[in-house]
């Protein structure tokens, strides 16, 4: 068996949301609490192991906690309790990645790479290659806010994989790309997996998951429902979602 790369034990994530207007001071003093405040229990004790070379497809219905799990694994959302152990710093590739909308694509690539810890010197050496990978052409000089979601995905994929990550987490970011981009990103991911990398992929495309992943994890309402070979987990998930339309 390959060595472990991620271990998650009894992971809980809760956060507070304000569903309505915050309670006024008077009401708080009378009732002792705000009215519209609700605690969302997004993950309720999830545990799993992932090994080097594993590609794990994470499936589940909307709002099941998949994205929360990836955010927590990327260290971007603090868990309420539980343990996350990793072999390397995971990198998250999400659709909502925000940089500076008014700045050009090129400047956003620079910022993103610096945010991930590259030095200016490394960046100067690599920038041409990163820009070439995006295949955005002249659009690279246009402000990021004028980009389509597919163009943003190209940009962010190029940033996140500029330094080959050992653990890559992808949240729906490939689906918005066109055929050529999906092909290209798949090659890069397969290359990473062959080098003992680890992939966790959230997607609603069972085809994409089957093609890239060897293992499946099904999360429903914050609880792990199934964990095993990708075909079995998908079959279980599909059967369940057909049964309860």
């Amino acid at each position: 068996m390959n060595p472990l790369s991620v271990r998650v034990r009894d992971l809980h994530v809760e956060y507070e949301v304000f569903t309505e207007r915050r309670a006024g001071l008077r009401q708080r003093m009378v009732t002792g609490k705000g009215s519209g405040r609700r605690v969302v229990h997004a993950l309720k004790g999830v545990s799993f192991d992932v090994r080097k070379g594993d590609a794990v497809g994470v499936i589940g219905s909307n709002g099941s906690g998949k994205s929360t799990a990836l955010l927590a694994l990327a260290g971007l959302l603090p868990p309420t309790s539980g343990e996350i152990l990793v072999a390397a710093e995971p990198k998250l590739l999400g659709v909502g990645a925000a940089l500076i909308g008014g700045a050009t694509g090129l400047r956003n690539i620079r910022l993103g790479c610096l945010a991930l810890g590259m030095t200016s010197e490394e960046l100067d050496d690599r920038i041409e290659e990163i820009v070439a990978f995006t295949e955005l052409g002249e659009a690279i000089e246009r402000p990021l806010k004028t980009y389509s979601s597919g163009m943003r995905a190209r940009l962010h994929f190029a940033i996140s994989t500029a330094v080959q990550p050992e653990i890559l987490l992808i949240d729906e970011a490939l689906a918005v790309g066109d055929r050529a981009f999906r092909q290209k990103s798949r090659e890069r991911i397969e290359n990473m997996l062959a080098n003992a990398g680890t992939l966790m992929l959230v997607s609603h495309s069972m085809e994409e998951i089957t093609r890239l992943c060897n293992r499946g994890i099904w999360i429903e309402k914050g609880v792990l429902r199934a964990d095993g070979p990708v075909k079995d987990v998908i079959a279980e998930y599909t059967a369940a979602s057909n049964a309860t339309p």
């Binding site: 060595p3 472990l4 790369s5 991620v6 271990r7 192991d49 603090p78 996350i84 990793v86 072999a87």
Partner: peptide, 19 residues
């Protein structure tokens, strides 16, 4: 859920994500 891997040697190579 059972985790037979709890005795896995390679677990010692892991570090906590948040320290």
């Amino acid at each position: 859920m059972e985790h037979e891997a709890d005795t896995d040697d390679s677990a010692s190579a892991l570090r906590p994500l948040v320290t």
